[in-house]
């Protein structure tokens, strides 16, 4: 599904974001990326859909090289990749429905989108997506009238309506409380298990990572220092990724 080939990234100011990454993620996996703040988690995730350009190496998504794609080809590849952000990144003034529908814009001609002409099928898809995250009744509310957890579920619905084969989530629960964290992560897990959509999720909390991941990738200063099934990710392993024993605030208490 995703393959990193010798990927490196140096920011214009000289900071090393990623260092020679070689990782292969298979279809249907639930990968959680962990690491200290500044380890390069966001950089890794954002290079998968090329919100960030890499400086070296190649990334293959769904059999096609996204790092080499241009114009329409790039849009085509991105269309298959959903993304969920820490701060939801919804259009707050627009309705929930329109936000979810915005996942569909990659499928249609530009002029149709300028006029806002979505086929009926898209609206059905959007409704289905909202039902999956248990929010059909909020469809015509404005996005900024929802709570944080609800907004995040709308953004999950957006990725679902997009019919993405792969969903990237950059700290999807970092601004949510434990209860909503559980709801949102459960949603992601169901989507992963029932629809077979591959998940790559950056997480800050170890216990959440352990509970939901099938595989864990540990980053440290832009390098992969751990990569393996969740069973192998022991406390000692985490201590090594973090370069120190675990601290209170890295455990949220959702899993217990």
């Amino acid at each position: 599904m995703i393959e990193f080939k010798n990927v490196s990234k140096v920011y214009p100011n000289g900071t090393r974001g990623l260092k020679n990454i070689n990782v292969k993620i298979e279809k249907g996996e639930f990968v959680v990326v962990v690491g200290l703040s500044g380890a390069g988690k966001s950089t890794l995730l954002r290079s998968i859909n090329r919100l960030h350009e890499v400086s070296d190496g190649e990334i293959i998504v769904g059999g096609k090289s996204i790092t080499k794609a241009q114009g329409t080809d790039l849009y085509r590849i991105r269309r298959d990749i959903g993304m969920i952000f820490q701060h939801f990144n919804l259009v707050k003034r627009s309705s929930v429905m329109r936000n979810v529908l915005s996942g569909r814009v990659g499928y249609h001609a530009t002029w149709k989108m300028v006029l806002g002409l979505f086929p009926k099928k898209d609206k059905e898809l959007a409704i289905q997506a909202l039902k999956r995250v248990n929010m059909p009744e909020k469809a015509y509310m404005r996005a900024d009238q929802l709570s944080g957890g609800q907004q995040q579920r709308v953004s999950i619905a957006r990725a679902l309506a997009q019919e993405a084969k792969l969903i990237l989530a950059d700290e999807p629960v970092a601004s949510l409380d434990p209860l909503t964290t559980k709801q949102v992560m459960d949603d992601l897990q169901h989507i992963n298990q029932e629809l077979g959509i591959t998940m790559v999720v950056n997480l800050h909390f170890i216990d959440v990572a352990r509970k939901y991941a099938t595989r864990i990738i540990g980053l440290k200063q832009g390098e992969v220092v751990f990569d393996g099934p969740v069973e192998n990710a022991t406390d000692e392993m985490f201590a090594e990724i973090y370069g120190r024993p675990l601290e209170e605030d890295e455990i949220m208490g959702v899993a217990r």
Partner: peptide, 27 residues
């Protein structure tokens, strides 16, 4: 305007015109 939604639109594979249309114009 808040440009965070623009990032989300780019990530769905929208071209610049579609991105403006959905992420900026409503605001």
């Amino acid at each position: 305007v808040d440009l965070s939604a623009r990032e989300a639109l780019v990530a769905t594979g929208a071209n610049p015109v579609k991105t403006l249309m959905f992420a900026v114009i409503p605001q």
